[in-house]
Design a protein around this nucleic acid. Structure first.
Length: 663
RNA sequence: AGCGGGGUAGGGUAGCCAGGAUAUCCCGUCGGGCUCAUAACCCGAAGAUCGAUGGUUCAAAUCCAUCCCCCGCUACCA
């Protein structure tokens, strides 16, 4: 009995449009699925929109629409965008579907029945000003373990520990910056800690990429905390018997993988349980995800599945993140390239992007997106090597023969093709997409050498059958290239396939077709070029768009005189200055601002200024700066300074009384 | 400072997990060839103490240790 494979992609969050970063996961996954099918493997490919969670609720609120409307909008957007790129899922679902609600409820109930869920009354951050319980990502406070400033769900700058709701100290509402208070509420927890031993064994055997496995093992070897799986929201899957609570989005999102499979199976008369309720059975589940959600897929998710008795994933393939111009993706800073606005709508062919993203570097490494590199790869590799070989071969064949001419296939040529095919298959199966594509591209380069060194354009004058033989060998290579490149560039590969006169489509063609001798007499129609060069102008335009987006993002808005008047800027005299322990940049200053008491101000000038030299100097101070604690020292004001290669302190032209106003 | 990712010819990259004999590929530079092909293609050359030091080994870009540097996020730059 043949094993079947289920491939999934991390669910796009239905809260914004698709950008290039998304594609780093989806394109290789699609490539992988196509490659499996070319090996004759029974493969199903599912994905869908992640519909729940706080950001969607808040964003919908701001836009004046319902969460459901917002989700539908982006669901349709992703669905269309993926299709435009020929990323073809068997099912692209939505975690808000009835199937997913039902499946999530069933799994939660099973976990409860199996004793893996317990309830506990916990204190949760509640903002009296906003009148709501604060989701963890809207809470800021102090890490209970290391004392660093932390986010509600993770001590992201200190010890890196995952924080459960209610753990954080001194909570602050991130929305209105006011002090949050704790209110007691009953919540439900998943006994993740009981799965430590299981996870340790499981991860040892987990397939996929090593970055996922190693990262997760690092966590398992530490301490696993039980996991709060309920939230105060009205949008999501209700927690059984508790109408005011929904299931945490990270529970129902991956369950989407199951429910999408169910929906697909129902539509095709297949039993979904063979996939998901078949532990130790004959199904391989492979998750493709971005490197940012390894924790959820390698820790929480397998524990949930184990606890509820479902099939465990066999592999997790985690892609490296995409950067832009060496900067991390950031919508707010303008470092983003949109799939539609910046690529498809500009008329670039989807296959080019597929090629670039899959072949530039190893799948697990960071990829620094650059229009310049994109252009170089297209023009040199796709146009110069692959496109040129195919076109020169086809045009020569068409002009001189019109059909596939007679002539034996060189054993050396067939061997090269066979080697390339094997290398491509092996590499793709190991998630080494670049290596596989390089192997295919090497075959094209070999084709150019073969054509060049055999000089058919000379032979044709004196020895037509000799030229024919060379041409048939080259056509064989073209045929093989079409097969090998189909997973990467399905549209272009199909075009090449048709151009060598194959009448059946390339879609169902197995890898083995690469070494099936091309039939003599098959018509070779007039070819069209597979790839067009990308002009400098087009790239320049794209670079300008990106630059403009970045500069727009950092541009500051105008302020009114009234707004400016709210700033209390005064001249003060530094009374004392001393370094702050453990900090290399900060000084603790006492400044006379003409008030009863000197102000304590923390300034980040330790690297450029000696404390002793500062005493007695006059500086310009923003006196009504929001007080803040830096390294545990309260700062009530801000010293103004030029920011150029270190701090350049602003000073008055001549000495004035401390407290003199600046306007 | 914490966490993450890196340091391989002028630029960008592969190889590192499973250590071996001329370190990959793309671009650039220099010289040559070809003219079927999208000024494409082919051949050749120069160019790398594989971040540093120490260790393991017959053998290290690859394994171990220590250190340095760069980038990103967060964070002290209030």
């Amino acid at each position: 009995m043949q094993r079947r494979t289920l491939v999934t992609c991390g669910l796009p969050y239905a809260n914004g449009p698709a950008h290039i970063g998304h594609l780093r996961t989806y394109i290789p996954a699609d490539l992988f699925v196509r490659s499996l099918r070319k090996q004759g493997k029974d493969t199903t490919f599912v994905c869908g929109s992640d519909a729940h969670g706080t950001p969607i609720v808040i964003n919908a609120e701001e836009l004046g629409v319902t969460p459901a409307e917002l989700v539908q909008k982006y669901h349709d957007h992703f669905d269309e965008t993926f299709k435009s790129l020929n990323i073809i899922f068997d099912k692209f679902g939505n975690t808000e579907s009835d199937t997913n609600h039902n499946r999530t409820t069933e799994i939660v109930n099973t976990l409860i029945a199996n004793g893996y869920v317990f309830s506990q009354s916990i204190e949760l951050a509640y903002c009296p000003t906003c009148d709501r319980f604060l989701p963890d990502r809207y809470v800021e406070g102090v890490c209970p373990d290391c004392g660093a400033v932390a986010r509600g769900d993770e001590c992201d700058q200190g010890c890196g520990k995952h924080l459960e709701p209610g753990e954080i100290l001194e909570p602050l509402c991130k929305i209105c910056r006011s002090r949050a208070e704790y209110r007691v509420q009953e919540h439900f927890f998943f006994r993740l800690s009981e799965f430590k031993g299981f996870l340790s064994d499981y991860l040892d055997k987990l397939g996929g990429t090593s970055n996922a496995r190693n990262y997760a093992l690092g966590w398992v070897n530490k301490e696993l905390h039980d996991w709060c799986i309920t939230r105060n929201l009205e949008w999501g899957v209700p927690f059984p018997d508790h109408e005011n609570l929904v299931v945490y989005v990270w529970v129902d999102a991956p369950i989407g993988y199951i429910s999408f499979t169910e929906e697909w199976a129902d539509e095709h008369g297949v039993d979904w349980k063979k996939y998901w309720m078949n532990p130790g059975g004959d199904t391989d589940i492979i998750h493709f995800i971005g490197g940012d959600i390894i924790y959820h897929h390698c820790i929480f998710w397998p524990a949930l599945l184990k606890g509820a008795g479902y099939t465990l994933p066999r592999a997790v393939v985690a892609s490296g993140m995409v950067k832009i111009g060496d900067k991390t993706f950031s919508k707010s800073r303008g470092y983003v390239v949109w799939v539609n606005d910046d690529y498809l709508d500009k008329g670039f062919h989807p296959d080019l992007l597929r090629y670039y993203l899959a072949s530039y570097t190893s799948h697990t490494k960071e990829l620094n997106f650059s229009w310049k590199v994109f252009q170089e790869k297209v023009n040199n590799e796709l146009v110069g090597t692959l496109g040129n070989f195919v076109y020169r071969t086809l045009l020569f064949a068409h002009k001189n023969f019109g059909t596939v001419p007679e002539g034996d296939i060189d054993p050396e040529v067939m061997e090269k093709i066979g080697d390339a095919r094997d290398a491509v298959i092996a590499a793709f199966n190991e998630y080494e997409f670049k290596r596989g594509i390089d192997a295919a591209m090497n075959l094209a380069a070999f084709g150019n050498v073969y054509f060049q060194s055999n000089e058919p354009w000379q032979l044709i004058k004196t020895d037509a059958s000799g030229a024919g033989k060379v041409v048939r060998n080259c056509l064989q290579i073209v045929k093989a290239l079409a097969v090998l490149f189909e997973p990467v560039m399905p549209v272009t590969a199909s075009a090449a396939w048709a151009q060598v006169g194959m009448d059946a489509g390339l879609d169902g063609a197995s890898y083995d077709k690469a070494t099936v001798e091309i039939a003599v007499g098959q018509p070779i129609p007039k070819p069209a070029m597979l790839f067009a060069k990308i002009e400098d102008r087009a790239i320049q335009e794209m670079e300008e768009i990106l630059e403009e987006r970045v500069s727009k993002a950092v541009k500051k808005k105008h302020v009114t005189f009234e707004e400016f008047s709210e700033l209390d800027i005064r001249i003060g005299t530094i009374v004392s200055a001393e370094p702050i322990k453990k900090s290399k940049k900060l000084l603790r200053l006492l400044v006379d601002l003409g008030e009863n008491r000197d102000r304590q101000i923390v300034a980040g000038i330790a690297e450029t200024h000696n404390p002793d030299d500062l005493v007695g100097r006059q500086v310009v101070v923003l006196a009504n700066m929001q007080p803040a604690k830096l390294f545990g020292v309260e700062s009530r004001g801000m010293i103004l300074a030029g920011d150029s290669d270190g701090a350049i302190l602003l000073m008055p032209e001549r000495e004035v009384p401390a407290g003199t106003a600046v306007a």
